[in-house]
Design a binder for these strands. Structure first.
Lengths: 131, 131
DNA sequence: CTTGACTCTGACATGATGGCAAACTTTATA
DNA sequence: TATAAAGTTTGCCATCATGTCAGAGTCAAG
């Protein structure tokens, strides 16, 4: 399989496939005489794993760990669970931070006339009116 | 005021102050004979404005617009409100995306034994078991 | 054989930020 | 005052994931 095919099969862009290779997330694939990368089904599967992990919000470092756990048939499920729970916790914090900003903005927005008048509590707050 | 002072006064790191200058978010400050940047209170205020906007989740491009609206005493509050509401909407989408990931992870985690046994629905799902 | 589709490498960009290093200035202390 | 410590300068590298672009070489089909 050439890179275009494995890209379609895995849903990972060619750009990112080469990137993952560069950072050692996937093994350097075989090369044809032409220099073209040649991938196996296993490579496609591994890339799909990476794409799924990314969609769940895992950063590269943790995906690296997960890949190791995936290929380690004897590892304890507790190891995987710990990583997942830590990730969930992190996502929670990030979502809460975003929501806090959103609430602040909405609080300001409802107090803003939103018409032709220039006075605006939103700008005032950003300018330092009430930190 | 030298950069260290304005940094403390505004809460913006020296690194970012120079960066904002480089991207034209703040004017190039006066220079002393030594070459040191020399800031005014107005500069510190502007940097505080930027820091506050950033804390509310505004990206650089929008901060640029807000700075313009801030210095335009006659602009309609509706202009500011529109930007704030759009930002709130964006934050909402991002927070929801993060929370969706978190919920998926928690769903998987509660179904994972989390003990010494190797079978794990989390890894299985990431490997493609049930997309 | 020609053309179009594919692949290669390398580089630049985003967005916000951190860090390091070498050289120079200012300030404080002995 | 001489020297040391602290502050500032510029510039470059790194992060994280991703896109795009260019120029050159390859492959497959007509």
């Amino acid at each position: 399989m050439k890179i275009g095919a494995v890209s379609k099969a895995s849903g990972v862009s060619q750009r990112m496939i080469r990137h993952y290779e560069a950072i050692g997330l996937i093994a350097t694939p075989a090369r044809r005489d032409s220099g073209y990368r040649d991938y196996s089904e296993a490579d496609a599967h591994r890339l799909r794993f990476i794409a799924n992990a990314r969609d769940l919000g895992f950063p590269i470092g943790e995906i690296r760990s997960l890949l190791g756990l995936w290929s380690d048939a004897g590892r304890a499920s507790s190891e995987v669970k710990a990583i997942a729970l830590a990730r969930a916790e992190d996502l929670k914090h990030k979502a809460e931070a975003l929501d806090a900003m959103r609430r602040t903005l909405m609080d300001l927005a409802v107090r803003c006339h939103g018409d032709d008048r220039p006075d605006c509590p939103i700008i005032e707050r950003i300018a330092g009116g009430l930190a």
